[in-house]
Design a protein around this nucleic acid. Structure first.
Length: 484
RNA sequence: GGUGCUGUGGCCGAGUGGCUGAGGCACAGCUCUGCAAAAGCUGGUACACCGGUUCGAUUCCGGUCAGCACCUCCA
């Protein structure tokens, strides 16, 4: 059994992973708010947790992976302004909130397919769990950690911090919270400025409204995750993940709500994926430095001079650790594209290698090094580095500079393919048109081979150049000519 | 202002108290090849700066500078 360690944001340490129930893992990841199309930065987080999910599956765990969909706009911020993002988008387009949600949900599903994300076990939505949210709010009130004001309910941070540690995740101290803030916050109805809304009384212009014991209104932002994680994973589960920017206040408040309602931190391990940067700055909607996942594939963003496939983008992201920020640039993507091609070429070569009765390199320990990389807090960059070590051996065997036994070849083939396709979630990108193109290419290359036999280099180069213009690269080797 | 993170060779990006200074891309030379591509081999002595601890620090500690993130919606 492989020994997996995971960095826990809660403790700041890498810890050996021990699931609560042997062989099974409960994981909750904060999903998107569907008020716009997710941009590439959003996708990075989902791709990273897809990697986590995939590796847990690879290790044989039965994983219940819950990722929510926020389809209710968050109604307030601490400045007391109304910022129902979904409602705002709906008003702009003069449609109903649900239309916005459906539109971007379809988009999100499409993006997951294109970027090869495995579907979670359950994708619950906020609006289908209003009742559960209300019940948890009632429990928090019962326990004395929330109060009702004029149809709204607020979490009482000061009362809570008498019994629990508010700030346990983010390292913030309640006493210092107020002065620590950048700007003056309107306290409004709240007793203490750090209190946050669990339920917010409806405004006349709200497009979505629900009934509650406190009157018509909307749930607060943080409560949906508490309600849905509890419902599907229980009070106490293994892993809770999300983007780094959710650490405070969202995850801190989730912990407070869980402790405030049923008395314990919901998750053993809190994982935070770091941000995607553009020129050293976080990609975000408000900065305007974002591009959409489809734009990069279609080559329609002016940040880069050409298009890159979803696989290349994914490979690029896998070359950085999930806890590090990563900077996108055309140069970096171009480098990844080439490197990924080399990896793919080697994988094509791998099953065709000739075997002998002796291996000149240690394939089993090479394979173990793949596991070692991932066991160390999902270190995909190291995994890829070790895969490239294998690539060199594969090419050497192909050139006759290394040899490999049948047993080693079988092991290496199975594990490399598993790590590249199943764990990293990369695809070989065989284009569907090959069915029709293949016979044509066979013919063309046969004609070129004849020309080469006759040392008719003019014809042979003419064919190669023409194909190159069509985007088809021809490579001659001792074994024959192949194309891609 | 508070809290935290980062600063690695031309670019991207791991990692470590000393051992052959990950890996990818780029570049140069060589081998192979009709040429090219691919592949293999070889090469460039990096770790922001200043102190300290140490036999020895890029890695630990302190400070400086720079950048970033969170403290407001945020993946």
């Amino acid at each position: 059994m492989q020994k997996l360690t995971i960095y826990n944001s809660l403790t700041g340490n890498k810890e050996e992973f021990k699931p609560i129930h042997e062989g099974r893992v409960g994981m909750y990841v904060c999903g998107p708010t569907l008020y716009s199309e997710p941009h590439m930065g959003n996708m990075r987080t989902f791709i990273n947790f897809d990697l986590v999910y995939r590796y847990l599956l690879k290790l044989g765990y039965q994983v219940k992976y819950v990722r929510n969909i926020t389809d209710a706009g968050h109604i307030t911020n601490s400045a007391g302004e109304d910022v129902d993002s979904i409602g705002k988008a709906a008003r702009l387009e003069q449609v109903q909130s649900l239309e916005i949600v459906y539109k971007f949900n379809r988009k999100f599903i499409e993006l997951q397919r294109i970027y090869n994300l495995l579907p979670p076990s359950i994708e619950p939505t906020a609006t289908q769990h209003i009742q559960e949210q209300i019940e948890i709010i009632e429990k928090i009130i019962e326990n004395g950690f929330a109060y009702v004001v004029n149809g709204s309910v607020y979490f009482d941070v000061k009362a809570y911090s008498e019994k629990f540690n508010y700030g346990i995740l983010s390292g913030r101290k309640v006493d210092e919270l107020e002065e620590a803030t950048r700007e003056l916050n309107a306290q409004g109805e709240k007793r203490f400025f750090a209190d946050f809304a669990l339920w917010k009384k409806a405004n006349p212009e709200d497009m979505q409204i629900w009934r509650s014991p406190w009157g018509n209104g909307n749930p607060g932002w943080h409560i949906e995750c508490t309600a849905m994680s509890t419902k599907y994973l229980g009070n106490h589960f293994d892993i809770h993940g999300g983007g780094m920017d959710l650490k405070f206040p969202h995850h801190e408040d989730e912990i407070a709500q869980s402790c405030g309602s049923f008395g314990c931190n919901p998750a053993n391990i809190w994982m935070h994926a770091n941000m995607l940067n553009v020129n050293g700055q976080k990609m975000s909607k408000s900065f305007g430095n974002f591009f959409l996942p489809m734009e990069i594939i279609e080559g329609t963003t002016d940040i880069f001079d050409k298009a890159y496939s979803a696989n290349v983008v994914r490979f690029f992201m896998m070359q950085a650790h999930y806890r590090s920020t990563i900077d996108v640039s055309g140069d970096a993507l171009a480098a990844s594209e080439k490197g990924f091609q080399r990896l793919k070429d080697a994988l094509v070569l791998l099953p065709k290698l000739k075997v002998t009765d002796h291996s000149t390199f240690d394939a089993p320990s090479l394979v173990q090094s793949l596991y070692d990389a991932m066991n160390d807090d999902f270190n995909a960059p190291i995994l890829i580095a070790r895969l490239f070590d294998a690539v060199t051996h594969i090419n050497k065997v192909n050139d006759g500079a290394d040899t490999i036994t049948a047993g080693d070849l079988k092991l290496l083939t199975e594990e490399m393919e598993s790590f590249v396709y199943d764990v990293l979630g990369l695809q070989s990108e065989e284009s569907g048109s090959n069915d029709r193109l293949s016979p044509v290419m066979d013919l063309v290359l046969e004609l070129r081979a004849k020309a080469r036999e006759n040392k008719d280099w003019t014809t042979s180069d003419q064919i190669r150049d023409a194909l190159a213009k069509a985007g088809i690269v021809v490579k001659d080797s001792k074994e024959g000519t192949y194309w891609s």
